[in-house]
Design a protein around this nucleic acid. Structure first.
Lengths: 120, 120
DNA sequence: CAGAATCCGCGTGGATACTG
DNA sequence: CAGTATCCACGCGGATTCTG
């Protein structure tokens, strides 16, 4: 089934590859996870995605917006307020990121052990 | 269910975060996809994971090996031959990467359209 | 063939300061 | 508060060379 897909990604279709490369970076994925099915403000994300810089947050939010994974709602109040929410494609991607998170949790022990065994 | 997990990743547990950061990069994921359930040689991977440099390939293979996601079998022949295979944790991760590939394929159109609509 | 090592440019990404 | 802009260091990552 994804024999085809993995082939496409590893080799050919430049659009699919470009999207994959955009998406497959830790900040983008962590932001998606953090928004979840909620609506979050910029500052909330800044706090909850720990370690992320102001710059990386805006940058990746723009990236996600550009690809239609999040919607950005600006409230013309003062002080300004901007809400971020996942779109349906974004939610669908989140499901797969959830799976990666589950994986991490599930194999935490094995990985830790593999590391200690690794004489590198 | 992954309310907890995403929280852990976004914030706290440094080990989980470290692993996630290791894994969530395009080269590592593409390599995992490319190995699949087969056994691949270094050169095969070099060819099939297109655009990857010699250096990035070795580097990421070491990373995956260190975390116990691939096994590296050296055949003491001349010229040397090295085989790479996914471990069980590696295979489990591959399943989630497959999901990401499916997602990319599924939403290709939406994303393309979102991009053209995006006035940035 | 697999990979270690070296050199080095360029982009990533942090810190800071400034607008609306 | 959210976002843009500027500056700059550091490290990613490519190209090349050298071993076993």
């Amino acid at each position: 089934m994804s024999k085809q897909l993995s082939g496409d990604l590893a080799r050919a279709d430049s659009l699919a590859r470009e999207i994959f490369s955009d998406i497959a970076n830790k900040w983008a994925l962590l932001i998606i996870e953090t928004i979840g099915d909620a609506t979050k403000r910029f500052t909330e994300l800044k706090v909850e995605v720990d370690g992320i810089s102001h710059k990386m947050l805006t940058q990746n939010l723009r990236l996600l917006e550009r690809n239609g994974l999040v919607v950005r709602v600006v409230h013309p109040t003062v002080p300004p307020r901007v809400d971020y929410t996942l779109t349906e494609p974004g939610q669908a991607l989140r499901a797969t990121v959830d799976a990666m998170c589950d994986w991490t949790q599930r194999y935490l022990g094995e990985i830790e052990e593999a590391r200690s065994r690794f004489t590198g």
